[in-house]
Design a protein around this nucleic acid. Structure first.
Lengths: 351, 351
DNA sequence: TTGTATGCGTTATCAT
DNA sequence: ATGATAACGCATACAA
């Protein structure tokens, strides 16, 4: 009976919901402008008045409506992070790194995975556009996909590519996959391996290109060619690893070593080997990427290509904020690469 | 050449950015109200006019500013999901499940991890409050923490507890951890085990309480007490598992079986055992939770308590949306529990 | 059926 | 130093 009166010309605000600057201003006996000045640290407010406003804010428990702030500043202080697979713990680590940068600076990081479906990536980019995201971190499925590229450019949102590149048209942050893979291949060759298989995914990405190039270069330095039939480059899924390793090991002339490049591939590959009664490094030598708990606890532990995903996330966040803050429209394209390291363990044997 | 004229209206808007309803309305030769009606499917717009507006929207590439929509509707169509550790793949799976519900209904799901720090949880809740989130899914660190509970209630945001409970004051969605753990304990007892250790984390949560209660009940049914020194209940981290298993196995009277309850604990426990040259199930029988790729690929594979995390996420999303949509302020407290299953493998031996 | 005007909550530009 | 007021971009009650 009391809250239907509500002739709210000058408010009989029985409904306790939704408080605004006005409520605070009224409570403190000042104007809305003053309240705004106080919360935004605008100089030139009397100390006593400021204090009154502060207590009013606390007593009422008011907090400014960010949507309203956005509409004025035309900045959402929101960043979108698009990648392919949320279950890949590497992205979790990158997210964590990025959040360490964004959080303290008042940005909200929103992560979303596309499951490798490019239509979904287009949708996500459009979504971030409607939500007026201030920036995007992109780890998209296929760099050359035209629909996605169009969506990016029509969004007009600042962005950086993470573990991806865009013909040098955009800033990119990545691990040195070429160097890491090359080191792994050279190690295998040194141990006497000549038939080296590679299972990985990410067609149409910088990462896969660099890995493939490194494999070719590494083999070439030993006057060898890559056997195309030893290349399985179509997915990062555990199931894919499971089946492909079975097919590879079932050949009359199976590989003696294998690069298993993809966090979720490793469990699949190991299961596949077990299902055939094959062992490593007895039947096949194994090098994986990245260095995960799984790689460490397997028997024997797996030699791994390691890089700092946390740092990757931080760097992506830093350079994105840098790009956003440039007032001069100058788009400065940069290229960051962090080093990799080969962690030697017991999954490679000399033959 | 035609769109740089840009004498738009009366502003000297050299900056071409930021188009609004006005631009679209002008371009289509209608009023802003009509444009709004078209995009919101408000009936009573002439078919021809609607078409004109549509093409204008597409030609200009305009999309409504969600912040502006929010400020009017006082709904952000944004949901916050707070949990402790983003690297735990279970949360990734739950997130995926929840997104399947939220996405099609126009809600943006924002995930954020607190690393088990309750101050951070308070900050996150406040953040979602300032951002006017429409709902929260909470998997907080300690249900009884007063600061967090205060933050929740002052936020005024609808919420559900996921794998947590709040004295029956809030809707909760959870796996049947009591049943799952009880089944595991009974299985171990049947296999002759009397000294059963438990390593897990999550003090102050429903999950831990249920697991402990199940262990006690299971032992009691065999007229046995739980040895408090076999309980290691302080963390879900791999490092914790590594060290605690070493301490447990180093005892003069070590356990013969162990419940390793936490996705990230398992790799740590296994490493710890390996570091001491202990094997499973030879030196100790092992049951883990949840059923992960790691559990499946270890040698031997691990008997696991399995439940459907994806479904858990979906159910949380569904019941949250249900709660949000109830116009009558009636807060209906519900309790959902999904079943668990004991997946028998080779990590438990009869003694 | 369509246009006009007002309000949502905040900040910035004027006045005072 | 502070108050009044006009935007910001959109949705809707009301007018036409």
């Amino acid at each position: 009976m009391e809250n239907d009166k509500n002739n709210d010309g000058d408010k009989i605000n029985i409904r306790k919901k939704r408080l605004t600057v006005h409520d605070v201003a009224q409570h403190a006996g000042v104007s809305t402008g003053t309240v705004s000045r106080v919360i935004n640290d605008v100089p030139g407010v009397g100390a006593d008045v400021a204090r009154r406003v502060q207590t009013a804010i606390e007593e009422l428990g008011w907090q400014p409506n960010i949507a309203a702030q956005n509409i004025r500043s035309s900045a959402s202080r929101m960043i979108g992070f698009i990648f392919s697979d949320i279950r890949n713990p590497l992205y979790a680590t990158m997210t964590k790194g990025a959040e360490e940068v964004f959080g303290p600076r008042g940005y909200l990081l929103v992560s979303s995975s596309s499951d490798g479906r490019m239509e979904r990536e287009v949708d996500l980019i459009d979504l971030y556009r409607r939500r007026r995201a201030d920036g995007l971190i992109l780890s998209i499925t296929d760099e050359s996909n035209q629909e996605v590229r169009t969506a990016i450019s029509r969004s007009g949102i600042s962005f950086v590519m993470l573990e991806r590149s865009l013909d040098g048209e955009a800033t990119s942050i990545s691990a040195d996959h070429y160097g890491g893979t090359l080191q792994a291949v050279e190690h295998l060759m040194e141990m006497g391996h000549r038939r080296i298989a590679m299972i990985t995914g990410g067609r149409g990405t910088l990462v896969m290109r660099e890995r493939l190039r490194a494999l070719e270069d590494g083999m070439a330095s030993g006057k060898l060619d890559v056997d195309p039939d030893l290349l399985r480059l179509d997915s990062f899924d555990a199931e894919y690893g499971y089946h492909q390793v079975q097919m590879l090991m079932g050949k009359k002339n199976p590989p003696t070593a294998m690069l298993c490049l993809g966090v979720r591939l490793l469990p699949g590959v190991v299961s596949g080997l077990q299902s055939m009664g094959k062992t490593f490094p007895g039947d096949i030598s194994l090098i994986c990427s990245n260095d995960t708990e799984t790689a460490r606890i397997l028997t024997p532990p797996i030699t791994a290509i390691r890089y700092d995903a946390h740092m990757l996330g931080k760097m992506a966040a830093d350079s994105l904020l840098d790009q956003i803050s440039r007032t001069d429209g100058k788009l400065e394209v940069k290229k960051f690469e962090i080093p990799t390291e080969l962690v030697l363990r017991d999954s490679v044997r000399r033959i």
